[in-house]
Amino acid sequence: MGLPIRVLLAKVGLDGHDRGVKVVARTLRDAGMDVIYTGLHRTPEEVVNAAVQEDVDILGISLLSGAHMTICPKIMQLLEDKDAADTIVVVGGVVPDEDVTPLKEMGVKELLLQDTPPKEIVARLEKLVEERGPR
């Protein structure tokens, strides 16, 4: 019996813009996924601890503060350190085009930027989990 995909949605850093993350949370729930929400203003350490304990398939990081190039490397390193590198990391929010490649190079699997239609978000996440296979 297949379990719903488990997703941890996290707001990391100081920005509190949560319109996007809430729409995504609702979209994923309505698509049958289990969404764990961390709340606002979390640190990379807190988020990774939660991702490990919750054993999520996907860690979704919402960032509109522009601090992604500082925060994402920390998160990727912490996942590695905590034996959770098989967590699929996805970033959403405002990310300039020139940062997309470096983010993907550090292991971020997908960027869901402004105006990505909800259905497409669901489809892309499902695909990522499928590609990963059982773990």
Binding site: L14, D15, H41, T43
Partner: peptide, 21 residues
């Protein structure tokens, strides 16, 4: 963001956000 949220620029929470937005 650090100024908006009341953190000094050398606080760990400010990392990557000083003078950015």
């Amino acid at each position: 963001m650090p100024t908006l949220m009341g953190y000094d620029s050398d606080h760990p929470m400010s990392d990557g956000e000083v003078g950015r937005e």
